[in-house]
Design a protein around this nucleic acid. Structure first.
Lengths: 146, 146
DNA sequence: TTTTCTGCAAACCATTTGCATCATC
DNA sequence: GATGATGCAAATGGTTTGCAGAAAA
């Protein structure tokens, strides 16, 4: 569900050219909840853009980040993940299958506000990461034991 | 203020040998609030252990992590930082001077409890990172403008 | 004496960069 | 046609690994 017009307009406005590669990369991020890293985006696009390189993905990610269309997620893996949902929300990573999901059930804004009011820093952002075992991996683990 | 006896006993108990390098590295982490990365530890020890290598620092960090004496801090830099305070507490990084400090003014345990009760994950840990400009860098910035 | 550790050098791997060619405008 | 983008290949840099000599148990 990408609003292609919006991306196109924003890229142009910020002085970047509009290319099929850039639209495709943003499109992948808009149509997944998997929070993919560069290689996952690369693999997803491989069948349709067989000549696209990882370098192009990294360069495009830099631009999308700069113009505020995506955010970077650093859940303590070797690689970074990317999210087209730029609104603040915590993430949780399964320590067994490494899947990364959004946490929406709890609103952290009061906590963040409290920190902002009690620190001498001029706050500009924050990231909350949770770690645990997802329901699917719990089930698999129970099967093995039971 | 490292409790050398405690480290020594714990290393032995877990089947690791006690070496001056290991004690020194843990000692550095116990006596700083700077949340150093491997290179900062290396530089700190350089005058006293001129032959110590970065490889030894990384290997020691792995062990200290494994036996629960330190925690890893991933504030979105190129390198990881380490903290001898293993109790949960949020960290804040100055986006100007890159200093990393503890946040102690606010208790996140109620928020974490709420997430634990509302997620289908079996929670094992979490990390909260804040970003902003520290008071010192704010002052410097004001000088330049004013 | 046995086992594990240190420290050098080489390997690793996600990400970045340089550059010639190519697409967008 | 001018400018900026792509994609290959090489570079980068934090971290890891292999291994011979050294220290701990």
């Amino acid at each position: 569900m990408m609003d292609a017009k919006k991306v196109t307009a924003l890229l142009r406005k910020k002085g970047f050219k509009v290319t099929p590669q850039r639209l495709a990369i943003y499109n992948v991020l808009c149509n997944t909840k998997a929070h993919p890293n560069a290689e996952m985006i690369f693999n997803k696009l491989q069948p349709y853009y067989p000549t696209m390189s990882l370098a192009t993905i990294y360069k495009t990610i830099d631009i999308l980040k700069e113009i505020g269309l995506i955010q970077v997620i650093n859940v303590g893996e070797d690689s970074l993940r990317y999210d087209a949902v730029v609104e603040l929300h915590p993430h949780i990573r399964c320590t067994v299958c490494n899947k990364v999901e959004d946490i929406m059930q709890f609103d952290f804004s009061p906590a963040i506000k409290a920190v902002a009011e009690n620190t001498s820093y001029d706050l500009s952002g924050q990231q909350f990461y949770f770690y645990g075992v997802c329901p699917e991996c719990q089930a698999k683990s129970n099967l093995k034991i039971g």
